[in-house]
Amino acid sequence: MTDMRTAFIDTANALLDENPRTALVLADISVAQFASASHRHPDRVLNVGIREQLMIGVAGGLALTGLRPIAHSYATFLVDRAYEQIKLDLDHQGVGAVLVSIGASYDGSAEGRTHQSPGDVALFDSLGDGWTVRVPGHPDEVAPLLRNAATSDDPIYLRLSEQRNAEAYPDATGLRVIRRGLTNAPLVVAVGPMLDPTVAATEGMDVTVAYTHTPRPLDTPGLRALANTDVVLVEPYLAGTSSALVSRALADVPHRLLALGVGQTDLRRYGDPADHARWHGLDADGLRRSISGFLGSVGG
């Protein structure tokens, strides 16, 4: 079955053929997968070598001339390392790009901290409210999101992961109800690949589970419509990344918020992504413990 990275590569290859505005900037990651595209479009498939600051600077320059750049690497190199280039070479110049990352959170569990970036979405929040952040939960959500991104000039971050749900919901830009609880049921919002563990964790509980692949801008009207007193966020990146947005959206209504996600501490452990999910309390058992404790009942 196709994974998200392959879905990105297939779609980006097609976009390069279809749309002369599309340009791809790489920094030695995924270069082989674009070898034939680079023969067909040598001026629009650009590998700058292991130079991520330059990758974003080049993307900014391409956008200044009217092209639509896509820049791609591991999240930690694309976002963390090139943060000031994103801030200045894109945002401050008033131009956008599509930034497509792989290696979300602890996908690179065996590689260690150097290859992990659980704080990437929080970094985009620090840049203001201009960025759209897409966190697909299924490979079939990737192509429509990338195609949509390629047609605009907006700044868009597409965060790909090896973690995935069983089912795709390409239309879940806003909060999409996956399971509806009874009247006044607590609301559990799952972002991207956290949906399946969240559904498993809340089995038998009277909660409403809503899903989105687009945490920025967060669907705050949808949140206000679905939320009652208790709200739980389950995010696949740093815990609490969306807390401020939820608090702002619900500022005028009494509410309690539990924000679950990746912990801030460098665990200094390897293992596989399932181990890290467990250590961060993001597997179904861990989520169930946290959510049950917060809601004050063990549920079914």
Partner: peptide, 27 residues
């Protein structure tokens, strides 16, 4: 003014991207 600048070390990368973008459009 073609770019906003101040923090050092950003102009050359933007210039490289600008030159590449012009070339890619046949300019």
């Amino acid at each position: 003014v073609e770019i906003g600048s101040g923090s050092l070390g950003h102009g050359l990368g933007l210039a490289v991207g600008t030159a590449l973008g012009l070339r890619a459009q046949g300019l």
